[in-house]
Design a binder for these strands. Sequence first.
DNA 1: ACAAGTTTGCAACTTTGTTGCAAAAGACCT
DNA 2: AGGTCTTTTGCAACAAAGTTGCAAACTTGT
Lengths: 143, 143
Amino acid sequence: MAELEAISLLKHNNLRLTDCRKEVVEIFFSQQHAVSQPELEHKLGQYDRVTLYRTLTTFLNKGIIHKVLDDSGLTKYALCAGECNEHHHEDEHVHFKCIQCENTTCIDTLSVPVITLPEGFTFLDANLLVRGVCKVCNNLTTH
Amino acid sequence: MAELEAISLLKHNNLRLTDCRKEVVEIFFSQQHAVSQPELEHKLGQYDRVTLYRTLTTFLNKGIIHKVLDDSGLTKYALCAGECNEHHHEDEHVHFKCIQCENTTCIDTLSVPVITLPEGFTFLDANLLVRGVCKVCNNLTTH
DNA sequence: ACAAGTTTGCAACTTTGTTGCAAAAGACCT
DNA sequence: AGGTCTTTTGCAACAAAGTTGCAAACTTGT
């Protein structure tokens, strides 16, 4: 049951168990693609916008979720792989944005290539966003 | 002189020569880093926000500028390399965002590596955003 | 200098995101 | 289960980013 997993994740991160947090975690568990605050607001109409923003900020600080770059201007979030915590994030996966359904997903089978920056630059992290048409949308148009 | 280049670029794209368009093009010419609408508004206080948004949209459609990914939530733009037009964009350069001065620049010496997507996905384009500290900020802190 | 079409500025609005504060709810102890 | 302490929530108000409709001003070609 998804709720038990959600509770377990919250407890592991020393977070109080509230309905809002549980439901937000369950949405991250159940969805393959990155989520924005407006999308959460739409799915969980019962919670205030402010509460959802604060929930996302809390999860971000705990290393439960990470920001996903997107060309829409919206800030989107996705679950971290597991190596992240309060002090360190490690989310260098490749993200794929479908130009038809507009969903952004993590592609776990690919990793961001090693980048050698020019002299004088210091590397912190890298984000790769690939755009195209996803599996689901490709199937829909060819059938 | 920068104004002549700006006029030439606008004429090549069949755009009317207006003060606003000329000044926006000149800013793109004179700056190394990507520009957001609020930044334009701040530098060119004389034009209405709406006009600047519409100017950016026009340039985007003509292939004069392209969107640059950024982790700030702001939409930023930079000049296209030259192979772009109304029908086709080709801007697969690597962008570098400095976490100190917050400027985003194109790194021309690097190119986005070739990506092989999983079965069923169609590739359109790719954007790589590297974060770190830029040359200028590194020099400032070591002196 | 004129006519035709384009661009601009203004007003009004929508959406996204933030902050302060009092009320409600969670966690812990007995 | 009840009491207490702390965290979280919802509300109101605000700030910033971005959009739309329309009349006035400007560009361009003749």
